[in-house]
Write a protein that binds this DNA or RNA. Structure first.
Length: 113
DNA sequence: ACGTTGACCTATA
DNA sequence: GTATAGGCCAACG
């Protein structure tokens, strides 16, 4: 219960910060990596707090299972998320990642358990 | 301590 | 294939 107490948020931040450039992952994948496959929604909440975090959290690299930029509206601008992804070479159209399967980065598969 | 919320996911119709 | 409903768990007010 010290100040280093790693809550769900901290764990999510650690994983999100580990996402390579030009790659994207899903909330469920992160939740599953943390051992809570049903806490996919909590990951989204953690992203919400990411704006308050002093660390850089590439939340734009986190999308839903369909590859849709579900949280684009939470960014500074309406299309800020798409711009950031496009800046990393990820093709985004109609608020959806093209070839999402190609850019998909699974923490469990990459980082392992 | 309780009720609501939330950037989701899966299942069923 | 699209639409709707339910579940899920942790943080917030």
């Amino acid at each position: 219960m010290n100040k280093n107490d790693p809550g769900f948020f901290e764990q999510v931040f650690e994983v999100v910060k580990r996402i390579p450039n030009g790659r994207v992952t899903t909330y469920g994948a992160i939740a599953r990596y943390l051992g809570s496959p049903g806490s996919s929604r909590m990951v989204g909440w953690a992203m919400n707090q990411s704006h308050f975090s002093h660390e850089y959290i590439p939340a734009h690299r986190v999308v839903n299972r369909k590859g849709v930029l579900s949280g684009k509206h939470h960014f500074d601008g309406p299309d800020m998320m798409a711009e950031l992804l496009a800046n990393e070479g990820i093709e985004v159209e109609n608020d959806q990642v093209i070839d999402f399967d190609r850019y998909y980065w699974d923490p469990i598969k990459e980082l392992g358990l």
